[in-house]
Design a protein around this nucleic acid. Structure first.
Lengths: 220, 220
DNA sequence: AGTAGTCTACCGACCGCCCGGTAGGTTGGC
DNA sequence: GCCAACCTACCGGGCGGTCGGTAGACTACT
């Protein structure tokens, strides 16, 4: 049934032709509300009201609150796999691969950050088994980035940077976008994606003339 | 009374001589539990049990759950002001100032991330007025970083980077540390602080030979 | 020295509310 | 007449918070 739920959510993100895709609307609404108020602060009633149902009516479509959360996270993880990891895996050059990862991940977030943000913020709302599942997939993602940084290091383009620390830091930078980016803000999504990607690449690539942070004497 | 609460929390972080500083222990415990389980998932009973009191006994010391949260966040913001912003304000050179900001903020997080993490993750648990207060102080912090980046841009050391986007991205990188850093991990706190600081500086400083990231759509 | 009063630091019992979830219908299209 | 798609009414339970105590240390007065 989780697979079914994922399918519904996937349908929801596309154009909503919607017949009995009421289920899709539910997952989409739930993701939006979980994102805005947090999982624990959101009641089943909130979600039901948002889709024009009573609580009991909602339970015709869902199994429970925790399954709803797990389904949303699973969908977000699927999105990451399909839109970020798989495309990046097909890129040989490590630097271009890193650009692909950052740009595509950032792009997903600027488009719709709900599910992807829940994915990282509501882990403790899951049952232990579900949590282990999601955490494992997240670790795979970080490892994938770290491997890419290690490849860059082997090419000599990155020196003195721990790949794991680098991977985590880039992920932090990307995920934080959902906290400050506003669709109606000064910059549009493409500009934000470009700016963050540039920073990410610059953050890991070594500069020939790099001077260590330990020397504050050059203060004017 | 909030000022009093802050004082209690501040005392709590130092050596706990503790006489009737029971209050300090309460705020410290609450911060730790809020950090681990989240504000909404934490019950007043959880906190009371953690300090060896009943719920009613706990209410002798606190005014309510939301005040507890606000006090913790106010304390975290005070910490940021005193340990990061004030020291950095005394640094003239923009680059060194940026290093000071990143290093000191990162250091605070590696030392004890509870309050600082709650500060960014539990905003929606606050009453509107309290939230406005905290958000305002957070915005001041981001503006302070953005101003520093703007100063670097005026020196020609940063080109083509929007200061606001830069500031947010650095903050994201720093805050994310609390999600992956473990005291008993492979790297110790100092190493993590150094690595992140280096990445942050590298992320914003321009490289002479910078080549733009291509179009990531052409993957494949 | 004795005792009455006072205050700090708590506790057991309770309140009303809302939560996630369910049982048992009802209704409208096929 | 049947089944998908709902609803009304309800349940047990845990929540934040309060109330009315009270043990015991300390003080004040005689």
């Amino acid at each position: 049934m989780t697979a079914l739920d994922h399918a519904a959510l996937r349908a929801a993100t596309g154009a909503a032709d919607g017949e009995q895709d009421r289920r899709a609307e539910i997952y989409r609404s739930a993701a939006r509300i979980f994102h805005r108020k947090g999982y624990h602060a959101t009641s089943i009633n909130d979600i039901a009201a948002a889709v024009g149902l009573t609580k009991a009516g909602l339970y015709y479509y869902i199994k429970g609150k925790q399954d709803l959360l797990f389904a949303i996270m699973g969908f977000a993880m699927d999105q990451l796999d399909e839109q970020v990891i798989e495309p990046a895996r097909r890129v040989q050059d490590p630097r271009t691969r890193l650009e692909t990862i950052v740009a595509r991940h950032a792009q997903l977030i600027t488009q719709d950050s709900s599910a992807l943000t829940i994915l990282v913020n509501e882990l403790e709302g899951l049952l232990p088994d579900d949590r282990a599942d999601i955490i494992g997939r997240q670790r795979d993602y970080v490892d994938f980035i770290a491997d890419t940084l290690a490849a860059l290091r082997d090419e000599g383009k990155v020196v003195g940077l721990d790949p794991t620390v680098g991977a985590f830091s880039l992920v932090g930078m990307i995920l934080w976008i959902s906290r400050w980016y506003r669709t109606d803000g000064r910059l549009d999504g493409e500009e934000v994606v470009a700016a963050v990607t540039r920073m990410a690449i610059s953050a890991v690539l070594s500069r020939g003339d790099y001077t260590s942070a330990g020397n504050p004497e050059e203060t004017g």
